[in-house]
């Protein structure tokens, strides 16, 4: 079941706590089958994660 009313419709790149829930231990964005987000939400999430990475709020990679 997809989270249709999920709160991730609006996600901010500064909200690291929320973003981290959707990252795996290596700092990669989890696939949709794991996040259970709608396609639109997943795109918003990806955008926010990439912005946060650029601003060094979250790492690009965790080894």
């Amino acid at each position: 079941m997809k989270e249709s009313l999920n709160p991730i419709q609006r996600i901010d790149y500064k909200d690291i706590e929320t973003l981290k829930k959707f990252l795996n231990p290596h700092g990669k964005i989890m696939p949709r089958r794991r996040t259970m987000l709608t396609a639109a939400s997943q795109r918003n999430l990806a955008e926010a994660v990439k912005r946060a990475r650029f601003m060094a709020l979250i790492p690009y990679i965790v080894r």
């Binding site: 709160p7 991730i8 996600i11 901010d12 909200d15």
Partner: peptide
């Protein structure tokens, strides 16, 4: 980082599922 955004505060409404 310069982005276009919305006027409303983008606050986490509730805990993400």
């Amino acid at each position: 980082l310069l982005i276009q955004t919305v006027r409303e505060e983008i606050a986490p409404t509730r805990r993400a599922v």
